[in-house]
Every structure is written in structure tokens, then in C-alpha cells.
């Protein structure tokens, strides 16, 4: 369906907001990468848990939460408007 009423280019603030959403959308990709990464460090022989493994995962987790918290107000700013599906 044509969306003739949508502007092709945006002002600075909506543009920033949209990029913020893009960043938020990419966050899970970064998250998956960081969560899977340690599996590749581990040589097959080592099966016991090191405390650093635990610390690593929780640091990653906290980092992701902090990023999400930083994005959250921006997500809400345009909340409910119709321009954010893409």
C-alpha cells in the first residue's frame, strides 16, 4: 500500500529517534554475540567453571541492561506514533 503521507526525510530529532530505535533493535544481536563468545574460548578439555566466566556473563548482562536503560526514554518519546515501524 502506498504511504504517500509519510515524509521521505525527517527533521533532526525524529531522525535521531529512529536511529536510536535501530540501535535498540541491534542490541540483541550484540547480546547474542557476547553470550555465545565464551563458548569459543573454551578448549574442549576444560569443563570446570572458573569464577571469571561467571563474572564475565554478569558484566555483559549489566552492560546490556544499562544500554537498554539508556535507550528506553527515547523509545518512549515517540511512543504510540505511527512513524516507527520502519
Amino acid at each position: 500500500m502506498p504511504r504517500s503521507n509519510r515524509p521521505l526525510f525527517l527533521a533532526r530529532a525524529p531522525y535521531k529517534r529512529r536511529r536510536l530505535r535501530d540501535a535498540a533493535r541491534l542490541l540483541p544481536v550484540l547480546g547474542v554475540l557476547l553470550m555465545v563468545l565464551p563458548l569459543m574460548w573454551t578448549p574442549d578439555s576444560r569443563v570446570t567453571l572458573r569464577s571469571w566466566d561467571v563474572a564475565y556473563f554478569f558484566l555483559v548482562w549489566i552492560g546490556l541492561i544499562a544500554l537498554a536503560a539508556a535507550f528506553a526514554p527515547g523509545l518512549r518519546a515517540g511512543g504510540g506514533s505511527e512513524d516507527e515501524e520502519d
Binding site: 530505535r21 535498540a24 533493535r25 541491534l26 542490541l27 540483541p28 544481536v29 547480546g31 547474542v32 553470550m35 548482562w61 546490556l64 541492561i65 544500554l67 537498554a68 523509545l75 516507527e84 515501524e85
Partner: peptide
């Protein structure tokens, strides 16, 4: 817990 974390931090849309 990682699964829901990923969904909530980025896939709120």
C-alpha cells in the same frame, strides 16, 4: 534468563 533479556532489551517493537 538470557532469552527474555534479549527479547526485552531490543525487541520491544
Amino acid at each position: 534468563y538470557f532469552g527474555p533479556t534479549l527479547v526485552f532489551i531490543g525487541w520491544w517493537w
